[in-house]
Amino acid sequence: MKVIFLQDVKGKGKKGEIKNVPDGYARNFLFKKGLAVEATPANLKELE
Rank of each mutant, 00 (worst) to 15 (best):
V3Q: 00
E48W: 10
V3H: 00
T40M: 05
V9E: 00
N20Y: 15
A39V: 08
M1S: 04
E17L: 03
L30E: 00
V21E: 03
K33P: 01
G24M: 13
D8P: 05
V21H: 01
F5R: 00
M1K: 07
K15F: 06
L47T: 07
E38V: 08
L35N: 01
R27P: 02
E46V: 14
D23K: 14
K19S: 07
K2P: 08
K15I: 08
K19E: 02
G34N: 09
K33W: 15
Q7K: 14
L44A: 05
G24I: 12
E38S: 07
N28G: 10
G34R: 10
K33Q: 13
I18H: 03
P41K: 10
K15W: 04
K33E: 11
D23Y: 15
V37T: 07
G34H: 11
K14S: 09
Q7F: 14
L6W: 02
L6Q: 04
L6K: 06
F31K: 02
L6G: 02
P22W: 08
P41V: 13
F5L: 07
N28S: 10
I18M: 06
G13H: 10
Q7A: 14
R27E: 07
K12G: 13
I18L: 08
A36G: 04
K19G: 08
A39L: 08
D23I: 15
A36T: 01
L44Y: 06
F5P: 00
N28H: 12
N43W: 08
Q7I: 11
V9S: 02
Y25D: 04
K33H: 15
E48R: 11
K2Q: 12
A36K: 00
K10W: 14
G34E: 06
K14P: 01
G13M: 03
E48G: 13
N20R: 14
D8T: 11
N28T: 08
L44T: 07
A39G: 04
K45Q: 12
L35P: 01
P41A: 14
A26M: 06
A39Y: 13
K15N: 03
L6I: 10
D8I: 03
F5T: 01
K32R: 12
L44P: 04
G11D: 08
D23N: 13
P41T: 11
I18N: 02
K33G: 08
M1G: 03
G24Y: 14
G13V: 05
E46H: 11
E38T: 05
K33N: 14
A42S: 12
E38W: 07
V3I: 08
V3L: 03
K10H: 11
M1N: 03
V21Y: 05
V3M: 02
K33F: 15
A42V: 10
E48Y: 13
K19Q: 07
E48H: 14
F29I: 11
E17M: 07
F5V: 00
G16W: 11
K12H: 15
D23A: 15
K12W: 15
A39N: 03
K19I: 10
N43E: 07
V3N: 01
G13F: 13
E38L: 12
V3P: 00
G34M: 10
N20K: 10
E17V: 04
N20G: 07
R27N: 07
E46K: 14
N43D: 06
F31H: 01
E38K: 08
K14N: 09
L47I: 12
L35I: 06
T40L: 06
K12R: 15
E48L: 15
M1R: 07
K12F: 15
F5K: 00
A42R: 11
D8M: 05
K10A: 13
E38G: 04
P41F: 11
M1T: 12
K19H: 11
G24R: 14
Q7S: 09
F31I: 11
K2I: 14
L35M: 07
P22K: 09
D8V: 04
F5Y: 07
A36M: 01
K14V: 10
F31Y: 05
